[in-house]
Design a binder for these strands. Structure first.
Lengths: 175, 175
DNA sequence: TATTGTTATACTCTATAACTATA
DNA sequence: TATAGTTATAGAGTATAACAATA
């Protein structure tokens, strides 16, 4: 429910004109927003991306690039379009990203004989080296990724997030 | 190996320098990325924001604007800077957002006598009406926010997310 | 001098549609 | 005609620093 904070039209900032407490202090109330998954997801992502951005300063790879490179390394020969679809990246954007990778010799583009409209991607040695260098910064259950959670809670969070986005516990766990 | 070898024969995609299976099919493996909280958070947020964007088409408020408006309604007289800090919005960006709100008569800006450098915000009737109209689209545990989760799992996810970003179960739950 | 908010500018992402080439 | 990818352009969002007013 939310029926608080009735009309406080002329709420003087500090001089409380109405019963509702005024937030001239520091901690302000999030109210029902605390039960809004979209809001929480955005807040959590903003915190993480901030930390990732700091870290990406020390390595020639952003977190987004790291993700794409890892996907290519894990799926050699993957079609560019499939990769874009899986990562929610539009084809037009993927083209620029991949071309930049090619310019830096991180990935190889190949047009297969079977269907010459498509582009297949594979990792190159420099790409693999970049991944290895960045893994410690961006990867796994690292401390900077935990927020206020302990390792067990983080795994629980991860599982719920996988379930949330339909990334069920199916692939590549047991070959 | 799974043998759909009709194209895989000559597709040099397949015959890479690695022994790894080739993902010319559809579902591709996310590998260790499935244990990467940052990656999962981004994927989940992308799904949600996509749905929110569709919904915001039918109402003159984006999901981000809805969040800010609700915060102002919940904290009448809140200082603009505090609001920006709480929501991870830079002051420069907040200025434009608030001015747009003021132009649409959704919020009121007030410069208090106590400290004339600051700006205090409060909701106006049109703002409250906009919130009410948008609540059904953006709010709570709505179906569009659940992903593949049932209501209980979603609450569990919400709690872990609150913990993750330090939004502990402290505020405004029991006044 | 430090703080709060504003302005101006540039840069990164993203969205969209038109285009090429293959099928 | 449909599909895969490319190109070009515009728009939103965000970062940065310089600035004004106030403390």
């Amino acid at each position: 429910m939310q029926g608080n904070a009735d009309h406080a039209d002329h709420a003087k900032c500090a001089a409380s004109s109405l019963g509702e407490p005024v937030q001239s202090g520091e901690a302000l109330s999030f109210g029902d927003l605390r039960h809004n998954t979209g809001f929480l997801l955005r807040m959590a992502w903003l915190q993480v991306s901030e930390r990732l951005e700091e870290r990406s300063a020390s390595v020639p790879l952003t977190a987004a690039e790291y993700t794409i490179l890892r996907m290519i390394a894990q799926s050699p020969g993957v079609r560019q379009g499939h990769l874009a679809q899986a990562l929610y990246i539009k084809p037009a954007a993927m083209t620029r990203i991949i071309r930049a990778f090619e310019d830096r010799a991180l990935v190889a583009r190949e047009i297969p004989d079977g269907d010459r409209r498509t582009v297949c991607l594979s990792i190159r040695p420099a790409g693999r080296a970049a991944i290895d260098r960045a893994r410690a910064l961006f990867g796994g259950l690292a401390e900077h990724e935990r927020g206020q959670l302990d390792a067990q809670e983080q795994q629980q969070l991860n599982q719920l997030l996988r379930r949330f986005c339909g990334l069920e516990d199916s692939d590549s766990e047991l070959p």
